[in-house]
Each structure stands twice: as structure tokens, then as C-alpha cells.
Amino acid sequence: MLIIINKRKSVIGMLCILALVISLYSFEIQTKVIAAFTDQECSEILEELFETRNKALLDADEKKLNNLYDKSTKYGVWAYEHEMKKMKYLHMWSNKQGITFKDIKTKLKINRVKSKEGGYLINFTASTEYKYEYDDSKNETNMFRIGTYHSLNTMKNEEGWCITKEWYTDPFADSLNLENIKFDDIKKHILEQKKRDSSNMNERRKKALEYADMFCGAAADEEHEYNYNKKYRNYNPLGGDCANFASQILYEGGSFRKTGQWNYDSNGATKAWVNAHAFKNYMIYSGRASLIAYGDYDKVYKASYKLEPGDFVAYEKQGKVTHISVVTGSDSKGYSLVNCHNTDRYRVPWDLGWSNRKIKFWLVRVHY
């Protein structure tokens, strides 16, 4: 059988395929360029918004904060009102503590961007560093970081970019009410304290501390890429990852052995491993830990100076522990600092975000 090949048609076909490939490749390049440009623009927008907002929070500048929000919608009003409450809380807490915030800076990592109604919907991670000094020790600067996960709508008006809606895991949501706490005696006691030396802690506590610093998520050093340990499931979408992280610190860092009650494997986690209330009960009733103090802030703040790196604080609301943080050090006045997940914290004063009178604290010594 004789097969006749039409060379002209064959060449035309090949050219069509080549043109299609070039077109698709060109489209892909254009898409990447547009995406890169959009990400760059959104990055610049966020940096400007956060720089202005951080300055407003630092200076308690209500007018500057007001100008950042579009209050023509209820979502813009809600976002503004919440930020106002946070600003007032931070300054009331600093008054209680006897400190002055000196600087607030945020590093941003954009995860997703979507064009929306003349602006953008931006999903991003923020790592915010706070620096503070005690009122009688101006030459010693302390630092902590808080990591948050945001979904923010922004649009441009006559004055520039503004926030029309914002949601994020707020570290101060449980404590925007300090009005009833008497500050004078507390401040006096805090300012009388001295720096503590934890250099003689045992090796297991040191390893627990290293793990806590490495995997505290959006609050960790940038070199750790703001990630949790990927060996473990992130339980934040299921109600919170704080007890899971505390358990990891004790197991991976502190070399505590797993038990039938306290365990994580391919089948998942036991209740004592992943639930804050069950974790606290297990640690105390198993003898792996013991209670230092229990009660509201007025009753336990003096005892908090007994906490050592590797111990933990449990936060109780309405009779149930809802959060766990692990002690990771102390500041220039010996005030205990903690790391945790949910809203990710790195070396944050242990009561910041939890000083509401309705909250009770369990200060717990872990026996390494």
C-alpha cells in the first residue's frame, strides 16, 4: 500500500502546534508577571498600612488609627472598633506593668491575593515584634513577638488605601477589660524585681526551650519560615493547637515518654495530648507536674516568678482550661515569658492577652 504524505499540511500542522505552545507559554509568563506585580503591590499596601497602624498603637493616636478604616460598612466599623479596644488595652497593660513600648514592627508574608471590588482580598501571615523598657530601667530593652494569620479586604479611596474588613486570630480577644484591676501595688512589686538567671537549668529543660523557640510558628525567627513541625497535625482548625504544641515540647524537647493516656501516633492524638484541660489534668495527676499557684491574676502574679523555662501556664475560663502556654524565659525584671500556638507567641509576658478578671491561672511546675 502506498502512503502519500502531504508535506505542506504536515509543516502547517507543526507550525500551528508550535504557535499554540508559544502562546500557552507566553500566557503562563504573563500570568506569572501579573501575579508577581500584584503580590508586590499588595506587599507595599500592607507594609504601609501596618507601619501606620503600629505607629498609631504605639502613640495611642486615635485619629491616625481612624483614618485607616472605611467605616461606611459594618465590617469596617467592627475592624476599627476592635483595633481601638486593643490599643487601649495595650496601654492599660503597660501601665499595670510599669513599662513603655518603644517600637512595634511587623514582617509580612503574603499567602494568597484576590482582586475584589476595586481592591484586594489578601490572606497573609504577620509576625509583629514589640520592644519595651521598664520605667526605671531605660537602658534595658526587652522584646517579644506575636504571630497572627489575617484575611484583609482593602480598597483605595481619595486619601489612599484603607481597610474595609479584617479578620485575624487576635491574641488580645480574651482580655480587653482591665478597668477593674488596681495597678499601683502590682506595678510596685514588678519594678522591685531583678533579672533572673536560668543558666543552670538541666539539659532536658534546655532542649524543651530550643524546641519551643524553633516551632512557635508565625512568631518564630524568620529562618524557620514561620512553620509548625510538619510531623504533627495542626489542630487550630479543630479548636486549637496549644496543648498539641505543649505536648510536643515535652516529648520532642524534654524527652518525656509517651504513655497510653498521653500519646500521638499515626492514628492521631489522645485527649491528654491535644486538649488543654485534659493536658493540665494529666500532667498534674500523673505526677509529671505539680501546682505552684492557682487563682486570678491578683492571687498568682507574685508566684509567677517561681516559674522556670519548661514549666507551663494554663488559662481557665468559666471553670475550664482553654489554653496552654510554655514558659521559655524571663525579661529584665524577671517577669516570666511564654511561647504557644493558636495565636503564636515567642517570649511574650505570660499574662499579656489574658489579664481579664474572669480568667484564672494554673501555674504549673514540670518535673524534668
Score class of each variant (00 low, 15 high):
residue 138 K to T: 06
residue 138 K to G: 03
residue 139 N to S: 12
residue 139 N to Y: 12
residue 139 N to I: 13
residue 139 N to G: 09
residue 139 N to H: 06
residue 144 F to I: 05
residue 145 R to C: 02
residue 146 I to A: 01
residue 146 I to P: 01
residue 148 T to S: 10
residue 148 T to H: 09
residue 148 T to N: 09
residue 149 Y to L: 12
residue 152 L to A: 13
residue 153 N to W: 14
residue 155 M to W: 15
residue 157 N to P: 05
residue 158 E to H: 08
residue 161 W to L: 04
residue 161 W to S: 02
residue 162 C to M: 09
residue 165 K to I: 01
residue 166 E to A: 07
residue 166 E to Q: 07
residue 169 T to F: 08
residue 169 T to Y: 08
residue 169 T to M: 05
residue 170 D to V: 02
residue 171 P to T: 14
residue 172 F to L: 02
residue 173 A to D: 06
residue 173 A to T: 09
residue 173 A to F: 11
residue 175 S to I: 11
residue 175 S to P: 08
residue 176 L to S: 13
residue 179 E to H: 11
residue 179 E to T: 05
residue 179 E to F: 06
residue 180 N to F: 15
residue 183 F to S: 03
residue 183 F to I: 11
residue 185 D to K: 10
residue 185 D to E: 11
residue 186 I to E: 02
residue 188 K to M: 13
residue 188 K to D: 15
residue 189 H to T: 11
residue 190 I to F: 03
residue 191 L to H: 03
residue 193 Q to D: 05
residue 193 Q to C: 08
residue 194 K to R: 11
residue 194 K to L: 05
residue 195 K to A: 10
residue 196 R to A: 06
residue 197 D to R: 00
residue 199 S to M: 04
residue 200 N to R: 08
residue 203 E to R: 07
residue 203 E to G: 04
residue 205 R to M: 14
residue 205 R to N: 07
residue 207 K to Y: 01
residue 207 K to G: 00
residue 208 A to Q: 02
residue 208 A to C: 02
residue 212 A to I: 02
residue 215 F to K: 00
residue 215 F to N: 01
residue 216 C to R: 00
residue 219 A to S: 03
residue 221 D to N: 10
residue 222 E to R: 14
residue 223 E to D: 10
residue 223 E to W: 11
residue 223 E to A: 15
residue 225 E to F: 04
residue 227 N to I: 06
